[in-house]
Computed example of a mutant assay.
Amino acid sequence: MELKFENCRMEVFHKGRHYLLSRVNLASDINTDKAMTIDARTGSFGGTMIGSSVNLKGKVDFASDEVPVGDLQLSFVDVDPSSLDLGINIYDKMTMDSHLTGPLNDISGEGRLQMGELHIPGLYFQDVEGKIHYDGAKLDFQDVTASVYGGRLQAEGTYDLDTRYYQIHGVGRNLQAAQALPKSHLYCNVDVDLNLASKGTSRETTAYGSFVSGEGRYRIMPFKRITGKFNQAYRDLQFYDVAIEFAGFSVATDALQIKDKKLTLSPINLKDSLGNDITTIDVGRE
């Protein structure tokens, strides 16, 4: 039996997920004793995920096993990440291409993701690319790379399609402070270790990690390095264990916090090269 749809609307349910597809063009040759071929292209889609189009092409084998076995090429084009409940507003488009194989009730596969650019609070990435693995319930991201402020990021993570929970770990190398903070008069390379986790809402999304710089300067003052840790939960961004090493002495502070655009800085401790206290400066609140 040959089946053909032109410019139709289609509604798809799969494992509790719901998709609404527009401008569907589908051609299929079906023989339930042997096999089925399918070639489908759509316009914009919504529901569990929102994007510009879906492309599906491949074959389903009805004869080789008790459950029909698929061999399918599937692409989701220009997916809106904000529709995935990431807990942070991301509207840069993402495309995922995958090759899925196995029984239709437990199909899995490998693929790739691409984003021309990605904006998240405080960071701007370009040319995002990586590998994906789909097992029916989760998307695993591996070997994800991107350009960020003159440096490079490598990341990996897991996203649960049903709970919308995810975890991401990334390492950034040789980020340029002058590009990230163009009006700060800070010039140095920075390495960052970043972790991002969410349970599907902004209140349950956290980011934490550490950073270390190379030699650089602030305005005309040279320094050896800057180190510290950070934690962000909902609208609170806190830096702690921050230390700036100069020739002969260092500057340290237990906590720097930004909340609702207000800065709180705990006392700054000046130490000599041996770690002995020189003085403490209480800068208070701006």
Rank of each mutant, 00 (worst) to 15 (best):
D160R: 04
L175E: 02
K183F: 13
V212M: 10
G200C: 04
G209W: 03
A177P: 02
D193F: 07
D191I: 00
N174F: 09
D162N: 14
F211M: 08
G214T: 08
Q176G: 06
A178K: 14
G172D: 10
G170Y: 02
S210A: 12
G172N: 10
S210E: 03
T158F: 04
F211E: 06
H169A: 10
G172Q: 07
Y159G: 04
G157D: 07
T201I: 07
A178F: 11
Q179N: 11
Y208G: 04
S184M: 15
T201M: 07
Q176E: 14
T205A: 05
T158G: 05
C188R: 06
L175K: 00
K183S: 14
V212L: 10
N174S: 14
T205Q: 02
L161M: 14
V171Y: 11
N195S: 12
G170D: 01
A207W: 01
F211H: 03
L194R: 09
T205M: 05
I168D: 05
I168W: 10
I168S: 05
T158Q: 14
L196D: 01
F211A: 06
Q167Y: 13
Q176C: 06
S210H: 03
H169S: 13
A180W: 04
V171A: 12
R203K: 14
Q176F: 08
V171R: 04
V212I: 14
H169L: 04
G200H: 02
D191E: 09
S202K: 15
R173G: 02
E215P: 07
R173A: 07
G214R: 00
Y166H: 05
Y159C: 09
R164A: 09
K183A: 12
H185T: 08
T163S: 15
L181D: 07
T163D: 08
G209P: 00
Q167K: 15
S184H: 13
A177C: 13
C188F: 13
